[in-house]
């Protein structure tokens, strides 16, 4: 019989569960964070001035509270999706498919 090992050596680290809309609850280490959601690439890029480009490329809401953000189930189904997460608790409030509007909270 093998000597008993502490659980973190055999079962991996305890992690947050993230609800993938395609696969259900999966451990955090399967996901990559994709940053703020609903940033729309300008339809006519040539019309933008420098300030507008800076807003699109660099300025972020950095919300303290409910934050709409992109996630990718990179080490699972590979799909992108959006989520509402409270950045003061890390609780997921909703997940929804990319391209759909932000749900009311």
């Amino acid at each position: 019989m093998r000597p008993r090992q502490p659980p973190w050596l055999t079962e991996g680290a305890p992690v947050l569960l993230i609800p993938c809309p395609y696969c259900g609850d999966r451990p955090e280490i399967e996901f990559t964070h994709g940053g703020q959601a609903h940033l729309v690439r300008p339809a006519r890029p040539a019309d933008l001035d420098d300030q507008a480009w800076a807003e699109f490329l660099y300025m972020r809401s950095n919300t303290k509270g409910v934050h709409a953000e992109r996630w990718r189930h990179a080490r699972g189904c590979g799909q992108f999706f959006n989520a509402l997460r409270d950045t003061t608790t890390d609780h997921f409030l909703a997940v929804y498919k990319s391209g759909t509007p932000r749900p009311a909270t």
Partner: peptide
């Protein structure tokens, strides 16, 4: 991103 002052193990 988070404001929780804690992170993943």
């Amino acid at each position: 991103t988070s404001y929780t002052q804690r992170g993943a193990l």
